[in-house]
Computed example of a mutant assay.
Amino acid sequence: MGYPQDLLASRSIIKRGNFALIPPEGLVKNVVPGFEQCDLTILASPRLGAKFVDYLVTMHEGGKNAQGFGEEGVETFVYCMEGQVSASADQETFLLEAGGYLYCPPGVKLYLENAQSKDTKLFLYKQKYAPLNDSSRKPWVVSGNVHDIVAVDYDNMTNVKIQDLLPIDHAFDMNFHILSFEPGGCHPFVETHYQEHGAIMLSGEGVYNLDNEWIPIKKGDYLYMGPYVPQATYAVGREPFAYLYSKDCNRDAAL
């Protein structure tokens, strides 16, 4: 980096347990055992108030995690933002290109290796799995690519589309979605709900209402939205505003 070229400033907003905006400027590298030839940043975590951990990973040539990511009782998910990655789980290997993803249920480790000489950029996630009382219903390994998933209208609005990346099945206690807004598109109302989200902006620009503060946001930014924080967005600019986000689901609130 070298010497700063201007006054030190940041667009970051951190309100633990409520919401956070983390732009790409200012991200620092974290050392996580098992990741080799990788630049890795921990985004959301329990220290921020989240029940999950999100990461941004840049795999350089030869980058990999050969010891496996995940552990007993923990589910994991990887999304390829740029490049190509060889992702393995449960003795099966998948070549993920941009838009490709792989979900691993608890107890199944995720193995990653850069499949090209250029850098590959990944979004990575882990969370403790909340099992059902019916022990026979368990999630399974899921892989796909968003380019093969039909985008459907969101709340009957033709200029807002949603894609579900995981099966709609109670065996899964969470899902990943991509929400895409044409310029001028918006949520139908300001949401206030029990679920929390971690979201990485994939394209475009928007202004996001977070706890009734309107905040500009754009491609490359990361958002954490805690339970019950009021939230909604308008898309602005010349291209669709789209983001990938996680959502806990299919479980009752614990006492």
Rank of each mutant, 00 (worst) to 15 (best):
I22Y: 11
V57I: 13
G26N: 03
T58E: 00
F19S: 11
L27G: 02
P46I: 10
Y55C: 00
A20E: 06
V57H: 03
T58V: 11
H60N: 04
M59S: 10
P24F: 03
L56H: 14
D54M: 12
V32K: 04
M59Y: 07
I14S: 05
G17F: 09
E36S: 06
R11A: 14
S45L: 05
S45V: 04
P24K: 09
N30W: 04
P23N: 06
C38S: 11
T58L: 02
P23L: 08
G49W: 09
N18M: 12
E25F: 12
H60D: 00
L21F: 11
N30I: 00
V28G: 11
I13P: 03
P24R: 09
K51F: 08
R16Q: 14
L48H: 12
K29G: 02
L21V: 15
N30M: 07
I22F: 13
F35V: 01
D39V: 04
F35C: 03
I14D: 01
L56A: 10
G26T: 04
F52V: 04
I42D: 01
I14P: 08
I22M: 15
S12F: 04
L40K: 02
R11T: 10
A44E: 15
D54A: 12
A44C: 13
P24M: 08
G26Y: 03
E25I: 09
A50I: 09
R16M: 08
D39N: 13
G17I: 06
V53L: 11
K51Y: 06
A44L: 06
A50Q: 08
E36K: 05
Y55A: 00
G34V: 04
H60V: 03
A20G: 07
L21W: 08
A50K: 09
R16N: 15
L43G: 08
I13D: 01
R16L: 09
V57P: 03
R47F: 12
I13E: 12
A44W: 03
Y55D: 00
Q37V: 01
N30Y: 08
D39C: 01
D54Q: 13
L43W: 06
S10T: 15
V57K: 02
V31T: 14
L56G: 03
V32H: 03
E36P: 00
I42M: 06
G17T: 06
A20I: 07
F19L: 09
L40V: 07
G34D: 04
P46L: 09
I14F: 05
L56M: 07
P33R: 01
G17D: 08
S45Y: 07
R16G: 07
V53M: 12
P23E: 06
V57Q: 00
K29L: 11
V53H: 14
A44V: 08
I42L: 04
M59A: 14
K29S: 13
E36R: 02
Q37L: 04
L56E: 13
G17A: 07
P23C: 07
L48W: 11
I14G: 05
R47M: 12
P33G: 01
S12M: 12
S45G: 07
L21T: 08
L43N: 10
C38W: 02
